[in-house]
Design a binder for these strands. Structure first.
Lengths: 125, 125
DNA sequence: ATCCCTGCAAAGCCTTTGCAATGCA
DNA sequence: TGCATTGCAAAGGCTTTGCAGGGAT
């Protein structure tokens, strides 16, 4: 547990629910540790994912977002401005029937709702 | 409708359910049109997505996969070998309650089941 | 003749890698 | 002291852009 890792985790805890990308985390961490390298960010994020503390999300927005694992939830994304919201979701609610599982051991599933946020629904573009 | 577009569409129709990436399509199209440029692939795919013929999938596998829109289905991915399977899924089955929608106009949602295919479940790594 | 599409080449963005130096335990 | 971690710099993969040539209508 190094200062670098503490700083990264702190950003994730403070900015919970912004779902930052590695790049955004990198940008923010510059404030306190201006010469942290990208490699450190990526290393740390991967380890935290490995440890099960973070989840890495691909939401169809063209980047990888990192999310502290707090509770069961799905994501709601604005296809226009890329805003991301958490929504409550019970992962027990949806199961893949055995006969459709192709013999897979299913470990989890993810749900993404896509649409337009209030602002973008009014003025598309 | 140019020969290039026909070739790309044909690959998608023939290889339905392999969910190729742009790169994979690019590689395959070389067989018949060796000097098609990447730009053409990407342009065409984007247009087809725009037209609603294809959907672009980010499945957490680190690339963008293209899928002919035939029928309602979800995706099942192997976290190890990255195999992708279609599974039947009724998109009417899951709805986001208004009070959780943050005012969004929800247009659709996507479901990804994650797990390990039979081969990878036996010999992980 | 016009306009859209193509190929080419280069740049771009994000991420990963290799290696030497650092510093934590 | 020893070993994991860091920073740096460079490379890598994939995608996008700009521009000029070419084909189709």
């Amino acid at each position: 547990m190094t200062p670098q890792r503490r700083a990264i985790i702190q950003i994730l805890v403070e900015d919970d629910n912004t779902h930052p990308t590695a790049e955004q985390i990198f940008a923010r961490v510059q404030d306190t540790m201006p010469n942290m390298s990208p490699a450190t960010i990526y290393n740390t994020l991967h380890e935290l994912v490995e440890m099960g503390v973070l989840s890495e999300l691909e939401l169809g927005l063209g980047g990888r977002h990192y999310d502290l694992i707090m509770t069961d939830h799905a994501h709601l994304v604005c296809l226009d401005c890329k805003r991301i919201e958490d929504v409550p979701y019970d992962h027990g609610a949806l199961a893949l029937p055995d006969e459709q599982a192709h013999g897979f051991q299913v470990v989890d599933h993810r749900v993404i709702f896509r649409g337009y946020c209030p602002a973008c629904a009014l003025s598309p573009g």
